[in-house]
Amino acid sequence: MGTAPPGRPPAPGTPRVRRLLGAAAFPALFVGLVVGMTQLPEFGDPASPASTHLSPRFIEDAAAETGAANMVTAVLADYRGYDTLGEAAVIFAAGLGCLVILAAAGARPDPPGAGMSHPFGSVVLDAATRILVPVVLLFAVYVLIHGHVSPGGGFQGGVLFGSGLIMMRLVWGPAHEGRAHQPAVPAFGPGLRGSLVLACAGILAYVGIGLAAMAFGGEFLNYGTLPLGGDPAHVRELATLGIEAAVFLTVAGTVAVLFDTISIGMRESGAPLPPGDGDSA
């Protein structure tokens, strides 16, 4: 625990007493939470308020109205599309924030490629990555387009795709430079700038679907009116896939942007800290 360095004015009460008093607050919090939870409906109770309000409507009508067998996808991209737009915007904003904090603050408009400063680069890792990365990226797209009928969708697929991008950066190093140690590795995948473009394209596509619905006479994101042919449920199914794809791009791009900016920031932040200053303590 942090002890005050000499020269700092002493705070009222000894540190030990204050820390004990503070620590005693947390058992009290736990007891309070458990006492409050005794008032909750029994675990698994089908008649609990959470299961009787709104959710029967979702369960019984979602498949007929949206064409998605996976009700979670139907709720995510259709009934609560507005909420999901907000979530995607939060994720995108987090990526932008990290970019502003780290990459932009480094005062270098075009950082020399993103990735680990010291790629691992062994033969075994290289071979394994060549085999694994296509599988991971393909599986991500599968998870995205299968989200209608099985667990999956834009968020999960996007994170998977992003992890594939990160795997390449970890093993092969920066996306657009520093391949001298392994000239045989093909350049593949978006760098920091490309990831940012992916994320922007995703959020713009999401808003674009919402505005297109308005242009064809619906409300914002009420995309049943889009002229995609077929019955309304089929139109909603297609538009839901569009929404999921937009979320996919946003999440995949943002995950890669976060990794790139943090690795750039770490590279520029210099040597490890002395013990006790934070890297280990």
Partner: peptide
């Protein structure tokens, strides 16, 4: 997923604080 990206943002802040 939001918590993943907010954690990433917080890590970015930590990197700046550290440097």
């Amino acid at each position: 997923v939001v918590s993943v990206s907010t954690t990433g943002l917080a890590l970015g802040l930590l990197v700046r604080i550290r440097s």
